[in-house]
């Protein structure tokens, strides 16, 4: 865990992001922002028939932490299942960044995590709605 917010790992992802761009037909897409600072992250996932993330892409703008963390997250989740992502915790997201974030900057570092979690829950809802055996919503 580095104390330097702007170590090479973060800056490399900021300058040469992994999968910055868009999918042609994402299974799901979602975005959110931090209105106070203007950071914005848009995520797109391609999920296969086994509920596994086949591809993950992002777009957005904002500080190095918000954009690098999205890039790091995209790289990390490809190949993971929705079950695994359901258990994925904020603490693990912060560990992925390999730098210690102050409370003020955790918002930036967790923006893409928040978007991802929303997508996972939305996919669960969709599934519930489609499968009569699970009774759908409420």
């Amino acid at each position: 865990m580095s104390d330097d917010l702007y170590d090479d790992y973060i800056l490399d992802h900021y300058e040469s992001p992994y999968h910055r761009g868009h999918l042609e037909q994402p299974t799901i897409a979602h975005e959110d922002d931090n209105p106070l600072c203007g950071d914005r992250v848009h995520l797109e996932l391609l999920v296969d028939e086994h509920d596994r993330i086949k591809e993950a892409w992002f777009d957005g703008h904002g500080c190095a932490i918000s954009q690098a963390s999205a890039s790091i997250l995209m790289k990390d989740i490809e190949g993971k299942t929705l079950d695994e992502l359901r258990d994925f915790q904020a603490k693990q997201m912060l560990d992925l960044l390999k730098v210690r974030l102050t409370a003020a900057r955790q918002k930036c570092g967790l923006l893409s995590f928040k978007v991802l979690k929303t997508m996972v829950y939305t996919l669960d809802e969709r599934k519930g709605a489609m499968s009569p055996t699970q009774g759908g919503r409420g």
């Binding site: 917010l5 702007y6 106070l36 203007g38 904002g62 500080c63 190095a64 932490i65 900057r105």
Partner: peptide
Amino acid sequence: HPHDMAELLDRKGVAVRAGHHCTMPLH
């Protein structure tokens, strides 16, 4: 990005403000 700028300036003891400064339509 301005937030990164403000954080790095702070390391040199320089206090500035970064953000939209309560003027979103202006930004």
